[in-house]
Design a protein around this nucleic acid. Structure first.
Length: 277
DNA sequence: CATTACCTGCAA
DNA sequence: TTGCAGGTAATG
């Protein structure tokens, strides 16, 4: 499940592999909807001949920048994969798009569940999207005070608030559970009741957990891979995610990790370390 | 605010 | 055979 660390891992791989390459064509597979509402002719007209000048990330979105009229916007959602291969390589699993680059290489997009998209946007589209996302947690724009302010008018549950990309950009189900465990905050805490001390702790642990996960090249449970086709190794670092209701003891106190549903998401936490006030 | 749709592999 | 996995948009 690609969240910020996994998307950042893909970004770094793509930056090393495709910046400086020119798009010379593309092949659409059996699910044309992968490129959104655009037809392949228009997609080609807007991308063929463009030089790839950079790869950026905002929240869980990737942006492949070009010197042409379009930016490629990629969202991997649940099972999307971007791989760089040779042009004559066999199709990757669930391949729906191949972008042909000069030098006999392809940028391939595969997606078992067809949730992800590779769409084209312009500079205004990027700005509009970026404007409705919250601060990047690895930048100075995320602050304890800002987080407390964003949480002040929230009446739901802290886990749901942190999953809202308008509050903090890039957290998903895995890392929210991990961050809350490390902060000893119950996932059902009312967001507006968090103290500034707790927000300071959250900011610190969000950064720590995400940076560490990037260093491990992301968490791979089944499908996540970097553009080289390599799995991430962060799964071994997880303390609670996926462990609730399976007789797994808390690494801190030995209490069995519990599983509940919060905002429709499976949630694992330690009922002893993470108590409601 | 919560719930559902979108998808498909896989575990129970 | 059923239901769960979950990021985001759409809906109630």
């Amino acid at each position: 499940m690609p969240e910020l660390p996994e998307v950042e891992t893909v970004r770094r791989g793509l930056e090393a592999l495709v910046v400086g390459s020119t798009i010379i064509g593309s092949t659409l597979g059996s699910f044309p909807g992968i490129i959104g509402d655009l037809d392949h002719g228009h997609f080609s007209a807007l991308t063929n001949g463009s030089l790839i000048t950079g790869v950026d990330r905002r929240a869980k979105y990737l942006f492949i920048e070009t010197n042409g009229p379009a930016i490629l916007q990629v969202h991997l959602r649940m099972t999307g994969r971007l791989l760089v291969t040779t042009t004559d390589a066999d199709p990757i699993r669930f391949q729906y798009l191949a972008i042909h680059l000069d030098g006999n290489r392809d940028l391939r997009y595969g997606d078992q569940r067809k949730f992800g998209r590779v769409t084209l946007i312009d500079r205004d589209g990027f700005t509009a999207l970026s404007d409705r996302l919250g601060p990047e947690p690895l930048s100075r724009l995320m602050t304890a005070r800002g987080l407390q302010l964003a949480l002040a008018r929230r009446t739901g549950k802290i886990k749901s608030a942190l999953l809202d990309q308008a509050v903090v950009a890039g957290l998903g189900n895995i890392y929210v559970d991990e961050v809350l465990f490390r902060c000893r905050i119950h996932p059902e805490r009312v967001p507006s009741t968090l103290t500034i001390e707790e927000c300071t702790l959250l900011v610190r642990e969000i950064r720590r957990v995400l940076k560490s996960a990037i260093a491990f090249q992301g968490t791979t449970f089944s499908t996540f891979e970097n553009p080289y086709g390599e799995s991430g190794t962060n799964a071994s670092q997880l303390r609670v995610y996926g462990k609730g209701g399976r007789d797994v003891p808390c690494v801190r106190c030995g209490t069995m990790i519990e599983r509940i549903v919060v905002g429709g998401r499976g949630t694992s936490f330690c009922p002893t370390c993470q108590r409601l006030p």
